[in-house]
Design a protein around this nucleic acid. Structure first.
Lengths: 341, 341
DNA sequence: CACAAAACTTTACCCCTGTAAAATTTGTTT
DNA sequence: AAACAAATTTTACAGGGGTAAAGTTTTGTG
């Protein structure tokens, strides 16, 4: 760290004896310069610890190294987990992931999209709010930025990657019917297309098995799923309104709340003798293995969803593959048998 | 949206009849131009929907409108929640929060810090990894960027904002001792200074109450706290190694795992007759109210921590108040009595 | 050793906005 | 209406680096 401070590439050129354009090449791709040159640059770099100015770089480049990630709720375990995986892959590929959370609010989603857009990202991976999304904003964003939509399939972007809710819900309904009383379906007002698909899948599967569908939709919205599960679960239990002693919840967080409600009413949850209420979820959130009893659920294929989303996006960015005709890439869920059902 | 596309301020000047420097003034502060001028600009803006190029702006401005937020683990409920609050406040103040998660890894923390630094943020709010932090990296970052440290007090930055672990742990130990058997303390290898402070606080409080401290430190590290709680809890229970039937866990996530372990071993957790094991946590994570039984814990003052951190930072940014001598701002925890202890 | 290809240097211009200084216009005050 | 202050326009340069074109040096091959 001797000598003067080096703040610009110009200055680095002076102290390193390498021309600025060559340095520029080096920073864009170190392998594009001769090895001897690279060595010299590295020595200078070690000595003066210079870093190119991001803003100056991005001002001139058509495409930046930024990848935007927008999720409806970063505190939701599903998104927390999938964001983690996506970030990792972006970093490994030399990109800069920037994560934005809409916290369930349309205003914030628009805000995030606008901020992101002015950052001129190379691409974006977004999980829209769904029903609460401002469709036009999202669409206008996707027209400017190569975008992969994941989790919640609103009809924008170049491709969709998510779970096959028909398969996964079908799997669970089948399992529940084979092992006991056919399930009722517990859901809130749908916040996104997944919720609707899951309900439809439940109905269809029940019918195909010759059972009457029983849907419990509680009139609450928002992202406090556990709380809704607890409060409404409490009410349903107290009022004796559960149409079946087997309950399939629209997602794990709702199930967590319902399990808590059952506990608080002295009802034993689980599969096996002495247990009177079976509760199943959907998603296999990271903490679903720690509920009491551990939650039987369907695991979304987190890593496939993350991997495939990122791969598709990189393909588009490199231009070597444009997904034809906005494909829907769906991954199957896996039945996770634990003790709750 | 008629006519040509307007991509630069120059072009907007042409179509609006306002000079570029005046437009520049307008975008920096709309109130700094005459009302009639503002009106004209707004009309042009509505018609052409232009947005200034962020990179060009930031290249010349000494201070940007970006605020960096770095947390060790964005999927952790505590950080998810506090980040949400901090983001909200930044947005309301006209700043752009950018969130980075280190995912528990030093390499990623350094990475995030470096990325952030090259973004020339107006300021940063960071919760360092703690023990895993590369102290020099963090320190060199804080020398360039006005930084408030929160949650995990490593000795860098302009101020620290967090919880008073001595108070909060003292509170809980007192409560537990008054209502039953004195607690043992369940922890992992400390990941940050908080963990150490909590253990020390436990020891001191126990001693001051005339009890012998009983510490259970399990030799595991990482951020899968629930999993550690479950696995090690299972082991301790099976081997009969719990020195007390009251366990104070270093944090809620560990408690969640321990509750699951107890459940799986058929042990009834809670306060009251028929319950044989009391478990308490610390932090009051959002989901701690949904455990079975609901978790007795100490609530960190999330909103005060978020608010105060942000206020301090804005004060520094505006230059109207420099925190003297790196103050530690500590907030008290509140006892949350639920059923687990 | 010759020669072409690859890598490098020099030179020059571009990106889009901030901002200072001087000249001009607009609006307000007496 | 004159006088003055405030706002705006014009002009000009700065910021840090991308990138093209032309010329020079290095490298690798025959």
């Amino acid at each position: 760290m001797a000598g003067r401070k080096v703040n610009t590439m110009e200055e680095l050129a002076e102290v390193s004896g390498i021309s600025r354009p060559t340095l520029s090449k080096y920073f864009n791709d170190p392998d594009s310069v001769r090895e001897s040159t690279r060595a010299k640059i590295k020595i200078a770099l070690a000595k003066y610890d210079y870093r190119p100015n991001i803003f100056a770089i991005n001002q001139n480049r058509k495409l930046t190294k930024t990848i935007g990630i927008v999720v409806p709720y970063s505190a939701d375990p599903f998104f927390a987990e999938i964001v983690r995986m996506i970030e990792r892959r972006c970093i490994d590929a030399g990109f800069w992931p920037l994560v934005f959370s809409s916290h369930g609010q349309q205003e914030l989603e628009n805000n995030a999209l606008a901020t992101l857009q002015s950052l001129r990202p190379a691409g974006a991976l977004i999980a829209p709010l769904g029903r609460n999304s401002d469709f036009e904003s999202v669409q206008s964003f996707t027209q400017e930025v190569p975008t992969i939509v994941f989790d919640s399939n609103v009809n924008v972007g170049e491709a969709f990657v998510g779970s096959d809710n028909f398969q996964s819900i079908g799997l669970m309904v089948n399992y529940l019917c084979r092992t006991g009383e056919p399930p009722c379906f517990f859901e809130m007002e749908p916040v996104n297309p997944n919720a609707n698909k899951r309900r439809d899948a439940y109905v269809k599967t029940m019918q195909s098995l010759g059972h009457e569908p029983m849907i419990l939709q509680v009139a609450r919205s928002g992202w406090d799923f556990e709380s809704i599960g607890l409060i409404e679960g409490n009410r349903l239990i107290k009022e004796g309104k559960l149409p079946s002693q087997t309950v399939l919840c629209s997602n794990d967080r709702l199930a967590v709340g319902l399990i808590a409600a059952a506990y608080q009413n002295g009802i034993k949850v689980g599969y096996g003798e002495g247990r009177t209420l079976r509760i199943a979820g959907h998603d296999d959130h990271p903490q679903s293995q720690f509920t009491c009893p551990p939650l039987t659920t369907v695991a979304q294929d987190y890593s496939s969803i993350a991997e495939h989303s990122v791969e598709l996006l990189f393909g588009m960015i490199n231009g070597d593959s444009k997904p034809a005709d906005r494909p829907d890439v769906l991954f199957e869920g896996k039945l996770i048998m634990r003790e709750s059902a």
